[in-house]
Write a protein that binds this DNA or RNA. Structure first.
Lengths: 202, 202
DNA sequence: GCTATTTTTAAACATTTGATTAATCAACCG
DNA sequence: CGGTTGATTAATCAAATGTTTAAAAATAGC
């Protein structure tokens, strides 16, 4: 059997919501793009808002769950950092609009999306920070603010995708060149993090 | 004289557009928040779209012009990096929603906002890259891909603000703690960049 | 003080938009 | 076949939204 109507609608909705956000997307956009009519959108998903929440939830999980998972893996520090950058870069190459979508819907302190995100994230200890602590104990790396390191790591991987179109403008890159650029970051980012952690203090 | 109606509208529009984006903002939102009526919004700005374009243009310039300016300054490398992080952090502490606003309106390859942004950015040689090249020539720093360094620098400064609400959730930070966190990055970010540029190759 | 201009207001207009309805069609089951 | 259920369609509704209008109020110029 081919793809179901429900899936066609969900796929179209995801594509359009990611590109235009909740407010700039109409039910008719979605219906037309899914090659059906607006009644079916509400038939399967009750309302634009509920459909959106489903897409948002998926997108949030799709973006942050793998990141958390890898950082909690049992891997040597260096291998883990490389794996993190590698995996996240590949993920975002497939879906470059994911982070800007999720984060733009989460601006504003007390939005429904923030509340939603807070409900769906597991607490648990941060094994990556613990690992860095242990490595510092063993004298393998410098003791610095590891929260800062974690945020920097995430920043360097994700931000180029969020600012993709500005970056392409400023550096006169084509889409292919942009993808080559982030591909090269798979080496550059871990090197930067590791040199910071390993080099002698000044 | 007190603040003019036109300014009241512009201020309200900026605040609401930054928080909710173009699509989720209504003319009535703006009018009410500016303590006037919708007719005046169109009286002074002709249409919601034109008002938005004015706000977007300002916001784009406000975000990227200072960054470009500082990186083109005549300053020693280390001082310049510190100044860049310092200045940009202070700027974003005042207006944390600026980058997510600009970048979320610029997703989608061929949007009007992308076109707009491309028109308003000066070309000119990238003096920061030239400076890094010269320092490498002199043997003061390693020769690495300096485009990657520049993007990483920008990423580490800007991304925490874009992901502010996720960050506050994950790290259980209050607003004050978040601001303290980015304040500490004023040291951490330059240290990371410089250690990468200066440490021996492996 | 009177006129001309600008600013402000309330009301209305035409579309758009999210959602619903009632009827039709298709599929499955006994 | 008959009938029940689920899927689909076209039409419609009410509310929201961007914009305009025409009149009133305020301001400026002489």
């Amino acid at each position: 059997m081919a793809i179901s109507t429900e899936e066609k609608i969900r796929d179209a909705a995801k594509r359009i919501f990611l590109e235009k956000g909740f407010g700039s997307t109409t039910t008719r956009d979605i219906a037309e793009s899914a090659d059906t009519n607006i009644a079916l959108v509400n038939y399967y998903f009750h309302s634009k808002e509920r459909l959106f929440q489903e897409i948002f939830q998926d997108s949030f999980a799709e973006t942050f769950a793998p990141a958390t998972r890898i950082l909690n893996d049992d891997l040597p520090l260096e291998a883990k950092i490389y794996k993190f950058v590698d995996y996240m870069t590949d993920l975002l190459k497939k879906d470059p609009l994911l982070p800007v979508f999720v984060l733009s819907e989460m601006r504003g302190e007390n939005t429904k999306m923030c509340e939603m995100a807070s409900k769906m994230q597991e607490a648990g200890p941060n094994k990556f920070l613990q690992q860095l602590e242990r490595e510092a104990e063993k004298g393998n790396i410098r003791r610095v603010d590891f929260d800062q390191v974690e945020v920097s790591l995430m920043s360097m991987v994700v931000f180029p995708f969020i600012s993709m179109n500005v970056l392409k403008l400023k550096k006169q890159m084509s889409t292919e060149e942009f993808y080559r650029f982030v591909e090269e970051r798979k080496k550059a980012i871990p090197e930067m993090i590791l040199s910071y952690l390993r080099c002698r203090e000044e």
